[in-house]
Design a binder for these strands. Structure first.
Lengths: 311, 311, 311
DNA sequence: ATAGGTTTTGTCAAGCTTTTGTACAT
DNA sequence: ATGTACAAAAGCTTGACAAAACCTAT
């Protein structure tokens, strides 16, 4: 049972919004302590996370709440056939068509990865990552295995088959792997300089970190500035590093305003700087900027094209 | 239930047009929230997408609306035999004539592909692509399997047997595959330079990307300029890269005007540059240009003939 | 049987709080001496440690107590199947998918490590550490093996499968290893100076010590100040060493207030000093500071970025 | 496409209560 | 050692506001 503060941290939703969603849409009804404090269970946190992801996809809050309840109830109904949900995890075949043996992109590793998360076994998770990244180019593995698998992990968690701790473990393991790859990719930075970061307040994003690695591997001199810089600081950083471009992720709906301001500010002061956008909310941002899509291969290619080829 | 903004994003139709189509032709009758906001269901989005594709093919809006309703009602009539639509997905045989065993272009993989989309299983979709592209030349696989399969996917979606998310997943997987192939094809660019792109405002197109790969493989030095360049910028890019030719896709009816302007501008300033056209609306464009048809094998051959063999 | 003072030392909880938890939540019911003094058994100490870890994760005290009792009772119930709990330790497979032999990140060593702790075999524990640190870079081994394994050790202890002495043995062995690595990393300190420590009253932390080693290896001139300095002393130390940055761990909930004060004081007197934060409570601290996350690779990279690059 | 009005939704504030670590008195 | 007291931190409810999104009609 989590306090409201903890629930807010776990879901990334503000405390005020948490209360508003409960009051207005009844998406959760947390238990109460004797004194009236809200006590959120794992079930509640999941419901909030689902609703949050829908809102970030562009649903209206009210509709997102309805859909969340619908999904959870349908899940419960499906689960009430007397079977242990744990069993079901392994009963559901995650891969249907048998592929030829030796194929490099089977999704067996995804299963092993998720099981490592279930057991909170960090070492095995790392082992899977090591094995995977040994099988193909970094970009290919990220686009075709890592990011889809992370989505799968999120789904498992949303269905209650994975604990919060399990999801965090996976996230940390991946972050460490990407950080190591980022370090390993340094050295051949003979290309133009790229600033890489997020709007202030956004959470750090694995996808953006993976992009940073790929950008380095493509020869860019990269500077990962994280989620700390307000608009004016972006400008100052561009000047200090004589950056030719910048790439910013816009992962959540609430990040849109801050991202817009940064794009406008940079557009005005440095119109020659190419601004690339990533993240699920990238299309909400206008102005002079490039929407890079959702594949790091494509995104890096796009930035290369813009910065290597003088108009 | 999507907000009007989200529905506009999903279909690529502007919010104002969405309201006009509803008012004038009644193609959709979205539910309303208590406050009167429109709420679009998956059914509505499909209707709009069908109408949009018709309009893009050149139909008048009114005719397109009638046809859309006709198609949907006939589908509903056919569907009202009491069967679960989900069952039907697997009951409908997707392959009619049995091919000789061992034939390289059976459509079993198409089925596996679509099932991966149903399950939102990115890894399996990628596995199918890998398997397919291992079986023949890039050009052959694209013309004879990929593009037809993508049409099949679109059809499945239009019939409600595939979610929006499923269709996006497929689209992204293909885009990643093509991007990788584009990168892999670089290196042997000893031929003339080709600019490849779309009119400003058009959506990026998988067919055009596939053409870019094939052009590279044929020895052209390709520059993929995307959908960003207005007419004058095309001219400037031609000069900067000393391009011998350019290829532009005209996928939608609304792109015709912009495409015409580009062709005219390039014709006037650089009459020696060969202009190739692709996309479903290619025949709407006149002037001095080549209509490349709908096969990338043919299209690349055509461009090679024009640019290698001096007239 | 421990006195209340000793129990307070073992768990890191103040004597007053120990009594309050007993009175208010009944989380433990220690025996009493003839004179009425509390006498804590190993079982009691574990309960208190579990509750303490939950409180440090952000649970409310009352909820943490309930959860602690729940966990202990469920454990007892599970344990009453007549089997020696010792056997169960080995029956639970810690690694499922067989990895290719020779892989560097199997978790067999973790098992050997825990067995050394069980047998109070300091030499074996050290041997495992030596073997591990020989297999990869210091940073990689810490992030991907040492820290996860220490978590595993904590879990074993919480389940009663490891004694207090066993856990201490492990802790000391690791501390010795890290201290040796810290010494070994000296010499090449040509970079900016970094102060490394904890808020007063906090326990020394293995994670922070590991960070200190990695910082040295990255070229920082490091000064490990431990948990002794109050806010004003941090300022004085910064001035005396002309430090460019400082890194502080915030491991427990009770450390938050002291940590906040230090950050505020340093921010006010030396706004140019970069403050990095680690530990599970790092996100509770605001002000001008950098949250370094939970990977020493990432953390050192972050500090390098901030201090090598003049704004 | 614009104008003018409405709905939706995240955030905040005021005033009050509960919780909890620590301190004090017996 | 025990019991009471206290103050800081965190939570609760109600009400309100402002920006964004949406509506209709012209």
């Amino acid at each position: 049972m989590y306090t409201i503060k903890r629930a807010a941290e776990l879901t990334g939703i503000s405390v005020a919004t948490l209360r508003a969603w409960e009051r207005r849409y009844g998406v959760v009804s947390p238990k109460r302590s004797d004194g009236g404090y809200r006590l959120y269970g794992a079930e509640d946190v999941r419901a909030l996370a689902i609703m949050n992801s829908l809102v970030n996809e562009g649903w209206s809050a009210r509709e997102a709440a309805t859909e969340t309840l619908r999904r959870l109830s349908s899940r419960d109904a499906a689960g009430k056939d007397g079977r242990d949900p744990r069993e079901r995890t392994h009963a559901v075949p995650r891969r249907v068509a048998p592929l030829r043996p030796g194929s490099r992109y089977q999704s067996e590793d995804a299963e092993a990865f998720i099981r490592a998360a279930e057991r909170l076994d960090s070492a095995s998770a790392t082992a899977v990552l090591d094995a995977r990244f040994g099988l193909g180019t970094f970009e290919h593995v990220v686009d075709d295995w890592l990011m889809p698998t992370l989505e799968l992990v999120g789904e498992e968690w949303a269905h209650g088959r994975l604990t919060v701790a399990g999801e965090h473990l996976v996230s940390y393991a991946v972050q460490r792997r990407l950080a190591a790859a980022y370090e390993a990719a340094s050295g051949r930075a003979d290309g133009p300089t790229l600033l890489i970061g997020l709007p202030p307040g956004a959470r750090h994003e694995l996808g953006l970190l993976a992009f940073a690695v790929a950008a380095r591997r493509a020869g860019f001199a990269t500077v990962y500035v994280g989620a700390d810089l307000p608009a004016e600081e972006w400008v100052r950083a561009i000047e200090a590093r004589r950056a030719a471009g910048m790439v910013m992720a816009v992962p959540r709906h609430v990040d849109i305003a801050a991202a817009r301001k940064i794009v406008e500010t940079v557009n005005r002061s440095h119109p020659e700087v190419v601004i690339g956008l990533g993240g699920s909310q990238q299309d909400e941002i206008g102005g002079s900027c490039v929407h890079l899509g959702h594949s790091i291969t494509v995104a890096v290619g796009e930035m290369s094209r813009r910065l290597r080829v003088p108009a």
